[in-house]
Design a protein around this nucleic acid. Structure first.
Lengths: 381, 381
DNA sequence: AGCATTAGGGAAATCGTTTTCCTTCGCAAT
DNA sequence: ATTGCGAAGGAAAACGATTTCCCTAATGCT
């Protein structure tokens, strides 16, 4: 359909090379260390955990020497069992194929590792069933916390929220509660800023909007900000063509939605796409029809994933600072675990404007005066 | 440098909303289930694990009813501790920002989940230190196996290999052993196929090659196949301009490498890039200089990640079937764990040819007669 | 009848940690 | 001289599962 002709079907060849199955020698346990150091396992544990006043420095160094010589590393499962809490933090991403989410995941992973956690990353495909499966699994793993990189409503999610487990919602707010911990941008202000940008350039439209489901916070707020600002400028909401596509696949939503939008009269010339992937779908649709971008139709995306700068010089976008999401998530997690405080972190977005002439340099033009609204409490209300 | 002008620095605002810290009610344990069902915990365990001949059907249904009513789900840590093996499979990816790796990770995750495993995904940034850190952590987690989605040599890797732990190398072969389990394509044949494609079209060059480090199997084999076929056609290896860039970031390698290649005489007109990301870097370099792609310079990439079809109509590529990597990885893992057999799975690659005229449709043109060589045992030797 | 086998199920050991009690010792304050 | 206290460290109890021994009936086979 949308993939090129292939030269041959899938398949392949598997060759097998035998290999002796050696019995696994057990790795050194805390008992082995204790024995070699001539102390009890309690002391080893205390030294390993840096507990003061429980071991003389002489004993401690003896223990450390034993640890060193045996290459001992505590098994996480033993500790997790005893403490009823592991160092795993589950990160449930809606779609790893989206470079923006991959960027967020990479950032979160880095920050978690710095903080001594271990990330377990999953792909929920934005499906409630799979999300529930993973939520249950994270519970079974005694995960310290769960990060939902775009959540959908699901029964298990409700259960965990009710049980007070540490949940962190990223990009899309908790679909089931107002005051859950959130890390993201001010979507309403960002949507506004795009409209503001076009208005400041003297554009009069026709404007368009392409989006996935508006049932969730991010999309709803972005759309509301965009449409609200246009309305303030006297542009009737009815005159703004908007479309979506079927399903959850943003690429196809953009492709199919754009095809519909092309039939609208008047045909929109400035279109906001609520994600980069939607804009990609739009791009393919327009390229196939010979419509020049941004010559005839100018696009604005959301996310500005790191690849845009390299291969999408035709796409301006609201840049979400995924590279700092990690530290924000970890900080929020700490507040939630240590103090039981749910926080809302609104990170600053930016507008990245690209000229996109196909033959000229991929120059990025600075937009004037796009206000970043920081004070929003309940965006999009 | 390569990112657009920004309208404001990063930063943001954090608001905090208090929330009562409720004491966590413990989830139901196996003891609770046993008590409610009026049996011993041993029986519950046996029922849960479907062990035959150890519980009457009447008892079993009583247990299941108790499980149901308590919402019991076994904690993984307890089981892992006892069995000295968890259901976690570590997947160490070199760079999640690469959509091809994200695609591979997504596929592997799906297959692992089907097989009852849990994926823990990490980003090693292709750094030996970070890789070692994660390898050690996976050991501590009693991971059932470790998948290295592009590995680098590291001490801990040697240690695990020597200890006979289940390691699976994907895309890049084990840098420290010949006969480790491998899942990937026949890189040598793929490199050959690109040369073959161009030769079959009557191209005479000048040809070029852009690559990251050639110290590892994949790149080395691809380059050898490509250059080998060109040499067979009488094209001197010395006449083939090739370049690389500093570091490990393929985007920048492509960008900087292409800048160097532009100074070569004669300037190459057909360039093979050993990854899509390198091709992206090349593209940006050429767009900035006003060189048309594929008009003046034709590019061939490796991977053909799923986004190419949407936004890179100018890029032909060797398509690696990442969507089936998952099943191959799981099959290899099973062979390794259950039978101690190390296997080599060479999956079929394909050539995806794109026309890429910027204004025309993004049509995919079928190439004629690109042989896929299946019999290779030691490619590139 | 005598014996082996199997189904059914419980008690307890086990995995590798952390943590709670203890005990002992030395020293300072009363 | 007695008490109190902190440092140092050991013994043993958790944690939640699986698994190894057991034991008792019942059944099949000679």
């Amino acid at each position: 359909m949308h993939c090129g002709k292939r030269l041959q079907g899938i398949g392949g060849r598997v060759t097998k090379h035998d290999r002796s199955k050696t019995a696994q020698p057990r790795p050194a346990s805390i008992a082995a260390v204790a024995h070699r150091a001539g102390v009890s396992i309690a002391t080893v544990s205390r030294v390993m955990n840096g507990i003061e006043n429980k071991a003389s420095s002489e004993t401690a160094s003896r223990v450390m020497a034993a640890v060193e010589s045996l290459g001992y590393r505590p098994q996480s499962v033993g500790r997790a069992l005893r403490q009823r809490e592991s160092r795993i933090v589950g990160v449930l991403a809606a779609n790893l194929g989206n470079p923006a989410m991959a960027a967020a995941a990479a950032s979160i992973e880095l920050a978690l590792r710095d903080a001594g956690f271990v990330m377990a990353l999953c792909d929920t495909h934005e499906d409630a069933g799979i999300q529930d499966e993973y939520l249950a699994e994270m519970e079974a793993q005694l995960a310290r916390g769960i990060v939902l990189l775009v959540a959908v409503p699901s029964p298990k999610l409700d259960a965990l929220r009710a049980a007070g487990r540490p949940l962190i919602f990223v990009n899309r707010r908790d679909p089931g509660a107002e005051d859950s911990t959130f890390v993201g941008i001010d979507d309403h202000a960002a949507g506004r800023a795009v409209a503001e940008h076009w208005l400041a350039k003297g554009e009069t439209g026709p404007f368009g909007l392409l989006h996935a489901s508006l049932a969730f916070s991010a999309g709803r707020h972005r759309a509301a900000g965009y449409l609200g600002r246009l309305a303030e400028a006297g542009i009737d909401e009815g005159s703004i063509a908007h479309a979506t596509g079927p399903g959850r696949h943003h690429l196809e939503i953009g492709y199919i939605g754009m095809a519909r939008l092309l039939e609208a009269t008047p045909r929109p010339r400035r279109i906001l796409c609520l994600s980069d992937l939607i804009a990609y779908g739009v791009y393919r649709c327009l390229v196939e029809r010979g419509v020049s971008v941004p010559g005839e139709i100018e696009l604005f995306g959301f996310d500005d994933n790191p690849l845009n700068a390299w291969i999408a010089p035709w796409l301006s976008a609201v840049r979400i600072p995924y590279e700092i999401f990690g530290t924000a998530v970890v900080a929020s997690l700490a507040a939630l675990i240590d103090e039981g405080r749910a926080t809302t972190a609104l990170l600053n977005h930016e507008l990245v404007i690209r000229g996109g002439s196909p033959r000229g340099p991929a120059r990025d033009v600075m937009s004037q005066a796009s206000r970043i609204i920081l004070e929003t409490k309940s965006p999009g209300a």
